[in-house]
Design a protein around this nucleic acid. Sequence first.
DNA 1: GCACGGACTTGCCCGAATGGTT
DNA 2: AACCATTCGGGCAAGTCCGTGC
Length: 870
Amino acid sequence: MAVEASGKLNVSDDEDGPVIFKRSNTASKKNQLNLEVPPSNGQNSGVQKGKVVQSVKASPTKSFVGISKASTSHVNTSNVKSPLANLKASSSGDKSRPPLEHKMLNAVKEEKDCIKHLSKDNFEDSEDEDNKPLSARLKMNSNHTSKATPVVQKTSEDSDDDDDLPLSARLSRNVGTSGSKYNDSDQKKHLSKVQKDGSSASIKQEKMSTVSVKRPLDKTNSLHSSAKKPKLSDPTSSMKSKQVSIKPEPKVDDDDDHIPISQRLAKSSASGNKSSSVKKVVKAVKVNKAGSASFKKQVKNLKKSGKNSEYSKSTKLLPSSGDGQKKWTTLVHNGVIFPPPYQPHGVKMLYKGKPVDLTPEQEEVATMFAVMRDTDYMQKDRFKDNFWSDWRKLLGRNHVIQNLKDCDFTPIYDWYQGEKEKKKQLSSEEKKVLKEEKAKQEEKYMWAIVDGVKEKVGNFRVEPPGLFRGRGEHPKMGKLKRRIHPSDITINIGKDAPIPECPIPGESWKEIRHDNTVTWLAFWNDPINPKMFKYVFLAASSSLKGQSDKEKYEKARMLKDYIGNIRAAYTKGFTSKDITRQQIAVATYLIDKLALRAGNEKDDDEADTVGCCTLKVENVTAEPPNKLKFNFLGKDSIRYENTVEVELPVYNAILKFQKEKGPGDDLFDQLDTSKLNAHLKELMPGLTAKVFRTFNASITLDDMLNKETKDGDVAEKIVVYQIANKQVAIICNHQRSVSKSHSAQMSRLTEKIDELQDALKELKTDLDRARKGKPPLKSADGKRKKNLTPDALEKKINQTNAKIEKMQRDMKTKEDLKTVALGTSKINYLDPRITVAWCKRHEVPIEKIFNKSLLAKFAWAMDVDPDFRF
DNA sequence: GCACGGACTTGCCCGAATGGTT
DNA sequence: AACCATTCGGGCAAGTCCGTGC
């Protein structure tokens, strides 16, 4: 954590005032984020423009419990940075606050573009609507909403807002309404199927885990959401208000750029802007309840501040907005650290039973192979073949070793195991020393100074050589990933910054660049696939990353305003006579409904996996009357297996796309991701396929949290969160392999339950006897038991029962989650503001949900208004 | 409009650290 | 304190999507 503060921080909460951060030495550790004191970066002497401020990503860790009333008091997390930095000056000793590059999400601009687009589009009705772009028909549909609900009528309960919900969420809302085909139990059934199938032992090997329902099926008509009026004409909709707020001037947001967050929050909500997010974060503004006069003064001051001011902002452009916009102004860092050179061990492997002499280079590669003995890769011929072919190049044609089959790496393997064991046996003192030594060596590489702010670097360690471990059936698995040298590495750094010293004497960097349109600090070509690059980026906790994260979620939120129309549009496309259009419609439907990935084309030298656009005929099986069974390997060769009920037109369209094709042919032969995304961009500015995943994940969380959270204790609320989290993970097909010890753990639990049940029986017998005034029987081990009263025995029985029930619940949860990975969605798909706001509303300490690194990563979200909804 | 280079996000796994239990 | 399960966080592979140039 990039916090340089020797004291602990305390979040203090004035009665109804702002939350401010105070230093407190007595603050109990419990509610404090453990703020580390990073060793000062001795490299700062070359700081450009002189100012260095610690980027404090750590969120205030005071739980929201104490500040949840703070619907009016917003903790500006970014504020946190500066006060902290101010508490103790950073290494430069300068307490001033640097400009933080807070580009604004130019959603507004984009929306403006979109409006332009929509209005210039041709919306006239024609005989054949299929000839119109979906975007055009979209508008039309929304103006004739009844047309867009061909399948099932919406019930009166369906509110306009339904469009904002994921299909799955809307399902439950429809439960019990007439015409609802699927009910809650269906949903549960689907979910439980996941669990059941997931228990198959082959999961790990085959990645065959079955995720039955990514998004529980809902009534088909919910897709249409036809009742929803186009937001464009809805005066109360946020979109409308956003549009209204769009001014022709390019600097739409300037007015409140410098307004403290709390003020702007109030402002934005007053203006009907749904977004409580802050476009620009002003650091170190102590939010106080000062009157508007002083507030205005503050704003004025901020506005006055020029380019060099600590409040000045850098570019506001979105990364996606094209022509090389600036990501930073000054950038200082120390380059990358290399793995240590190879230390030959001299242990001789055997060839045809005889020891073989190897050069250090040959031995190094042999060792890489030897130590992989216990992995699944050793069962794969491709791995061994690739290894052999690369190793043989090192050995040379005339080497005594002529084939891999006769190689015995056991001596090296044993040596390695011994080394591992030695390391394990080190005393904790010794381990600590080693760790500190390593940290000391790495310290200088851990930080970069971006526009005067000290930020953590993500992956400053150059990847060591090794054997390539591709996932799934990767054609290149086992190939030698050669060592990377300074001459492979391009460094990106500020023009005025000192060029990092090359850490390997006598060698030098490949190239030095000063490109401030990109965020990488260094890159090298991937030795396995030289067309690809390996980048060194800033850590997730950095402002740069935080900013784009926020933009991602803002874009997904924007989709909420468009989703109704988009669904109406693709529904129309299902029956289009234009095959491309029809395929686009069906693909968009699948991406929306099932949260599928886009599915880019892949090279032959990659594992054979697919996404939506690259689905093969064989990946989808039609099951009459209207079910589709999906079965394919997706990203990371994780199997996606799901049978879903779809709208009949979709079902028929799929049948049509499959007609006269072989199993390996493309289902969507007219489609690729660029066409699909180009189309999506017509519907909403910046819209791409992956936005649907973010949208669906976040809206599901938001909806489930808000529906399911009941009054109760914190533990119960956390369970609600975990259930929602799990639901999202299932939707996104985030899987994990079953832990090796899973079955052992389960049987241990079963054993314990059995023991408890035996004890229960005994207690019941004793109770019977006690009621009859008889003493208890001797226990199984022959010991005499205390003579308890019936009341005491009853109490014990109840306790035991409760214990058994809890253990059974735990077991079930464990089994349920054994193949579900919750982390991925938390890190990548769930808008943290949903979580933070929910925590504030329900007095759940945020630390119960976000760990230290998530708190740092989501620092930008911590000040969200408790009323925030996705 | 397409191929390709390039930049960035997403995703699973595994070893280390942490935390709970006996 | 030893043991075991869980969580954390790094590692790096594998995606998405953009821009460019032909």
